[in-house]
Design a protein around this nucleic acid. Structure first.
Length: 606
DNA sequence: ATTGCCTGCCC
DNA sequence: ATTCTGC
DNA sequence: GCAGAATGGGCAGGCAAT
């Protein structure tokens, strides 16, 4: 077995190839970026965030398993000492240890390209004191991660690493138009109080949070004229062929702005009604065709609601403050509706800055809550926090100052999402009956998970399945539940359908005796292909279900006959239909009766 | 051709 | 997506 | 505070069975 072959160039690692999508090759070929190797990549782009070690595994386990693991001539044939030095990095990697990555990285420059000496690993490890080593590992890992989230190409990174090592890496592999950046994310919060706690009076912007699809749009004017556009999803999938209407929009936009060479925008693509301009549901958007869509074939029009600018004409803007990036974006690229009706619209997200006034902010939130076509607000810190000299040394143990950079791949509190359905008293809360369950997996093997829930049908006098639920339960609750509904007690739980219920398309492993009521929260009511709940009350005779269902609490005070019923559900659904602006007043007739509990409509204080 | 089932991706 | 748990 | 795990509804697309 040859030890000299660099397995980096092999098409894939057998062990890991199955689930890996061919993202890398597409990234590398786009805009004729300088591909380092011709390898048809098999690297899953987002695995870095799961564990750096697991990704480098692709590069280096390849190396190692050829050169070390499956090279018995290097080891004794029978019982190789499990911790023999040459195997150490492999072990670390297999154990998912992050420092394994750094270990490998540090040794990378020592690889002779065609002849790897496995002992290199430990030689280096042994020479350096453990703490020095681990701190070096940490900073190496940190640097690599930072480079990776702005330019997720292993080919480029490994190539640069072999040439210039860690130090020159950021300059060698910078953010590049055509290579997607891992998007910045927002942390969930549940009140304005929490905003002020976190931001402590620093100015922020509140943006409407639209219910669409995240899109990072790259635009590059090529030297010979044509304008290249790429659209990437939140997980960096290339969606360009799904959105010819967005591509077309960006091309005309650059025709209007002949001075512009290149840019990267962050945005939400939202389905819109072409006639009225009102927003359509997420479900409408997701019914669009996804592959090789032709502009004339587009059936659902969209608006591109832009909210950030990451790159402009050769300048990387990630480290600028949000205020700077935003004003650059707004001033340079005003909202625009193309004449060609087939093209997407270019719009800025609606927003209200905290500097305007408390009243305006309050109104903004209330508007967001009342219209049913938005999810809530995104709160974004506008400026980097500055630590003044006085407080520097002496004052309290300060937290790290907040920054308003574009923090690729991070869920920070400089971006917060305040969704209506997080806030108690707002959003859809249902009282549902557990009527069945499935056997759990993994850490939930000992318990029932998910649980099947039903509404109450007063006409038939039995529950009707509406959705499954697996979120919001504590381990302790699961335990209790497994005792309350045990197959040992056939009066409560059974493999066969002993109790009168309708299940629609749901086929649980076990059935529960309808016996209790739980409060379940969700974001939206959906028209469901498998639920038959309230199906006689919907236009399409499809049933209704719940988006993002999660358990809130047991309703000991309710019997199953007091659970939410079909008409309550149907009213919720109707009230959320077609409600863009003010036009929904006639429809709202949700009876706030005994079946629901709206008692705790706590206003949120601003 | 049509239907059903599974995967992969969106949220 | 949401949530809980363990480091 | 963060990563990891388990799994929600629902769509298009692809493939196999009818």
């Amino acid at each position: 077995m040859s030890t000299s072959k660099r397995r980096i160039d092999r098409p894939s690692t057998p062990v890991h190839s199955k689930r890996r999508k061919d993202t890398q090759s597409r990234l590398d070929s786009f805009f004729s970026s300088p591909s380092v190797s011709e390898r048809p990549g098999k690297v899953k782009a987002d695995s870095f965030q799961k564990s750096i070690a697991k990704d480098i595994e692709i590069i280096d386990v390849d190396l190692l398993d050829d050169d070390v693991v499956s090279a018995p001539e290097h080891q004794s044939s029978s019982s190789p000492k499990k911790n023999s030095s040459a195997l150490r990095p492999v072990k670390l990697i297999q154990a998912g240890r992050k420092d394994a990555f750094a270990n490998v990285q540090h040794t990378t420059p020592d690889y002779a390209p065609l002849a790897v000496d496995p002992s290199t690993y430990t030689t280096i490890s042994m020479d350096i004191a453990q703490d020095t080593l681990s701190s070096r590992f940490r900073s190496a890992e940190h640097l690599l991660r930072k480079v990776f989230v702005q330019h997720p190409s292993y080919d480029h990174i490994v190539g640069a690493l072999l040439e210039v090592g860690l130090d020159g890496l950021p300059q060698r592999v910078p953010l590049t138009v055509g290579i997607p950046v891992y998007p910045a994310l927002g942390s969930p919060i549940r009140s304005f109080e929490e905003i002020y706690e976190r931001l402590n009076d620093l100015p922020f912007s509140a943006e409407l949070k639209y219910d669409g699809q995240r899109a990072q749009i790259h635009v590059l004017r090529q030297s010979d004229g044509p304008i290249d556009v790429r659209v990437f999803s939140r997980h960096l999938e290339d969606m360009t062929s799904k959105y010819p209407d967005v591509t077309g929009l960006m091309q005309v936009l650059l025709e209007i702005h002949p001075e512009t060479q290149s840019l990267i925008l962050d945005s939400e693509i939202v389905a819109i009604d072409r006639a009225t301009g009102s927003l359509k549901s997420f479900q409408a958007l997701s019914s669009r065709a996804r592959k090789d869509v032709r502009l004339e074939k587009v059936e659902i029009s969209v608006g591109v609601f832009v909210f950030d600018l990451l790159y402009l004409d050769g300048e990387i803007l990630l480290d600028r403050s949000f205020r700077t990036r935003r004003s650059l974006m707004r001033n340079r690229f005003p909202s625009y509706i193309p004449e060609n009706e087939l093209l997407a619209r270019f719009q800025h997200v609606d927003s209200c800055d905290s500097e305007e006034s408390q009243i305006q902010l309050q109104n903004f939130w209330e508007t967001a809550v009342s219209r049913h076509d938005t999810e809530g607000l995104m709160i974004k810190l506008l400026d980097h926090e500055v630590c003044d000299e006085d407080s520097k040394g002496k004052l309290q143990a300060r937290k790290k100052p907040l920054s308003a950079i574009y923090d690729a791949d991070k869920r920070t509190f400089s971006w917060m999402k305040l969704k209506k359905d997080y806030v108690s008293g707002i959003g859809d809360s249902l009282d549902l009956i557990p009527i069945g369950a499935w056997y759990g997996n993994g850490r939930k093997v000992k318990w029932w998970s998910p649980i099947l829930l039903g509404i109450w049908d007063p006409d038939q006098g039995h529950p009707v399945a509406i959705c499954k639920c697996m979120s919001g339960f504590t381990d302790a609750f699961y335990k209790t539940l497994s005792e309350q509904f045990s197959l040992d007690d056939a009066s409560k739980c059974s493999r066969s359908r002993l109790w009168d219920c309708e299940f629609g398309g749901f086929k649980p492993d076990v059935y529960f005796k309808p016996d209790m009521v739980w409060e379940i929260r969700g974001a939206d009511i959906t028209l469901s292909p498998i639920s038959i709940a309230a199906c006689h009350l919907t236009s399409s005779s499809k049933g209704l279900s719940l988006r993002f269902p999660r358990f809130i609490r047991v309703r000991d005070d309710k019997t199953i006959m007091q659970a939410s019923d079909a008409s309550f559900l149907a009213n919720l659904w109707k009230s959320q239909q077609g409600k863009s602006k003010e036009q929904d007043d006639e429809l709202i007739d949700v009876d706030v009766d005994s079946t629901s509990d709206y008692s705790e409509m706590d206003d949120i204080d601003i």
